[in-house]
Write a protein that binds this DNA or RNA. Structure first.
Length: 349
DNA sequence: AATTCGGGGGC
DNA sequence: GCCCCAGAATT
């Protein structure tokens, strides 16, 4: 059964390996690593333009390692999961400074890099060096769960262990790179999450889920998502084109991105309530006692929370100092700083 | 072991 | 609205 599976994946790939990716047939470990970091929890079509821009800006990993933090975060702006960007920079600098700019060529060396977990290490090791490590991503979980009829939840320790072992069992050791790309392509193109193409699937005759009509029931996830609501009120004082900004540094969303002076509340508040908050007084200064104009509410859906934001122009004072912790920046400098999408959209007008 | 980290796209 | 995406780090 396992041999049938492996042979089927490889055979499918021989006829359908036409899914074009910028890094297919790529052997430069830097490019493979970069693409894999960008594609973590990210659709290929969303990540592709970022990959192209990063390669153009930083042809070698030493170029990336030498780049200023802010320039790199600006290039990452809009891609999400910003810890990836921070870890990517750290890893690039590790390679540049501790490995003389040469990307590590062992599984242990690769997995020691920041931001490189089990999946990414296996992907780099197999794609760049054909080392026999099986990738285990969302595609692989789904394909294995369906073909072998496994209903163990994938988001548990037991599930991860079981699927990791199975993925390694069905890996053809001599063709690790080709096979790893093949099973992920197969999962994306044939064994899709919704409406998989079972009628034309060469594995369906031995597919446990298809034979039992369970393709919609596996893979299983055990956890349910809880989404909180948060209300952000951004305060803009009327000082020409200057903006007051600071970098977000707390243990919260959007680390290393910038923001305007802002008040957060756990529930919506009226303009009058906002004006009466001590936090408003502290941020606005004594000269700003009213809301001159306000944007309609904008929403931003994150994985675990919904952000409701309004942008409020406050007045009447125009010559005020930046609030504590903020600095004044020109429009030109704003273009070089990274912001969360909800602020990027506001700045675009 | 559970939680948290964006943003986009499909249905 | 809900689920998923070439997952990893932190708590």
């Amino acid at each position: 059964m396992k041999q049938f599976f492996t042979a089927g994946i490889l055979a499918w790939n021989e006829l359908h390996n036409d899914r074009s990716m910028p890094w297919k047939k790529e052997k430069d470990p830097y490019r493979i690593w970069l693409s894999e970091i960008i594609l973590q929890q990210t659709r290929v079509e969303q990540g592709r333009p970022y990959y192209e821009r990063f390669i153009a800006a930083y042809p070698a990993i030493t170029d990336l390692a030498a780049a200023p933090d802010e320039e790199v975060f600006r290039l990452w702006q809009g891609l999400g999961y910003y810890a990836r960007c921070k870890n990517m920079l750290a890893a690039a600098r590790t390679v540049a400074q501790q490995h003389q700019g040469r990307f590590p060529d062992t599984y242990e060396g690769i997995t020691a890099l920041k931001g490189v977990g089990a999946y990414t290490a296996a992907a780099i090791a197999s794609f760049a060096y054909n080392l026999p490590h099986a990738v285990l991503d969302g595609n692989v979980y789904r394909v294995l769960a369906r073909f072998f009829g496994i209903d163990t939840p994938t988001d548990t320790t037991a599930g991860k262990k079981l699927f990791t072992q199975l993925a390694q069992d069905v890996l053809p050791g001599q063709q690790a790179g080709t096979y790893n790309q093949a099973i992920m392509d197969f999962g994306a193109v044939v064994c899709k999450p919704q409406t998989p193409l079972c009628k034309s699937c060469r594995l369906s005759s031995q597919c446990e889920a298809f034979q039992k009509g369970l393709t919609d029931l596996v893979p299983v996830k055990s956890k349910k998502l809880r989404i909180k609501k948060r209300y952000f009120y951004y305060l803009l004082s009327g000082n020409g084109s200057l903006r007051y900004v600071r970098k977000r540094t707390g243990k919260d969303i959007w680390q290393n991105l910038h923001e305007f002076p802002m008040i957060e509340t756990p529930a919506p508040v009226t303009d009058a309530e906002l004006l009466s908050l001590p936090a408003f007084r502290a941020l606005a200064g004594p000269g700003n006692i009213r809301i001159e104009s306000a944007s309609p509410e904008k929403k931003q859906q994150l994985t675990h929370q919904t952000i409701h934001a309004r942008f409020l122009r406050i007045g009447p004072e125009t010559e005020v100092l930046p609030p504590e912790g903020f600095r004044a920046v020109s429009a030109a400098e704003l273009d070089r700083l990274a912001f969360p999408k909800i602020i990027v959209d506001f700045l675009k007008g």
